[in-house]
Design a protein around this nucleic acid. Structure first.
Lengths: 219, 219
DNA sequence: ACTTAGTATATGCAAATGCATATACTGAAA
DNA sequence: TTTCAGTATATGCATTTGCATATACTAAGT
């Protein structure tokens, strides 16, 4: 239900769906990707359950705008949400999966470099976008640490996006160098199978932690 | 269908579901979280569509193990997958959403610090785990850059996990300092609403890029 | 013999996701 | 005056998730 809470947090002043969608871009969207159909659905659910109240405002352009306004109940929920912890999210990073198994390819080094470079392009585009926004914000008095709270905290999240992507870029560039410096033999010789050594190596480790172990469900 | 491809990439030597699950932990799991039910489902689909062939091996302990073996078709698919680009994945980082809107709380500074510290604990745990695995790998001859290819590329992905999380930690620690240094007035005074300035500021930006815009679907 | 623990493979299901498409209304262009 | 482009809100639907639970078989304890 994360999206619902996020919408509540943005509705401290009444807004319509489209306004929320616009606000998302350039702010929340950098750490919470979603699409407009989900926003409208979430708003409908919030309205249905009484966290917001929708008010139709006839619009001069297009169909009636619906303005959403926080209710008492919504404010309570928002306060509770802010007090709760969250979790650092998992991800599904397909690029890494390919690099992990790149020895399944006939030309591991070439393939790995291709993957790295393609990733690099994507990340740079994202960094450029974030930098553009940060540049807009840098005109604010007190930038960054002494900006008004309602600019400062959003900036922190933007800055996170930048640091995270710059770290990724750094890893990519380091990795490209590492790969280029490896001898051709190292990449092409050896068993091309799954790293059996690694597998053995991990047996000890496995004993200690347990991601998806089948919890005994009777007790 | 990412998981299916990943499983193919691990099946360069035949394995059973449980073996794959074990291998996942400590390697793939750090950048591709999933659970065992999904692995079995994916294996079933791969078998049904002829990418792998399952072979039941009566086991001395428990029910018959099913060994999955790549077919020609599977090998072809794997090769194709490795040649394709991927995308840097989106994420849903609820912590950041809370920090973004922390001014909705009565005590933004206090709340923000709580969130940061709770996040910090999580990240440190993850770093410790990854470091333990890297330490195991560090015994390999040639570590890191001249290890055999089937250790080197997996290590790259592990190292990515470490760098990414260390960057997050760095951001958290920087942010804690920034927040602590802000004057109390800065955090509590000012309008507590949504950052209207930010909203205005983003209007220009919006013109240029377009995340979820409603593409005109006739043309 | 009978329960319990352990291993291995699966199923059920509600919710979330992503993407395409529909509806509805306005103002301007052809 | 019909068509088009734009704005705003929604619906449809197949797929993917996450989590809980089921099934099936073995080996040991008691």
């Amino acid at each position: 239900m994360g999206l619902q809470d996020i919408l509540l947090s943005l509705l401290r002043e009444p807004m319509s769906g489209t306004e929320l969608i616009h606000f998302f871009r350039g702010t929340i969207h950098h750490f919470w990707q979603t699409d407009l159909s989900q926003i409208y659905r979430a708003l409908e659910a919030l309205d249905r359950e009484g966290y917001v109240r929708a008010e139709s405002m006839p619009s001069s352009k297009g169909p009636a705008r619906k303005e959403y306004r926080l209710t008492k109940k919504g404010r309570t929920r928002l306060a509770g949400w802010l007090r709760q912890k969250a979790v650092v999210p998992p991800h599904k990073f397909e690029y890494l999966a390919k690099i992990f198994s790149v020895t399944a390819d006939a030309h591991p080094r070439k393939r790995a470099l291709e993957l790295m470079r393609s990733m690099r392009g994507e990340v740079i585009d994202a960094v450029v976008q974030l930098e553009a926004i940060e540049h807009l914000m840098s005109a604010t008095p007190g930038f960054p640490n002494d900006m008004p709270a309602n600019m400062f905290y959003p900036w922190l999240t933007l800055h996170h996006g930048l640091m995270r992507r710059r770290a990724l870029l750094e890893w990519i560039d380091e990795s490209i160098v590492r790969i280029e410096r490896r001898s051709s033999e190292a990449d092409n010789a050896g068993e091309s199978g799954c790293p059996a050594d690694l597998q053995r190596m991990l047996e000890d480790y496995r004993a200690e932690t347990e991601p998806f172990s089948q919890e005994s469900h009777r007790s």
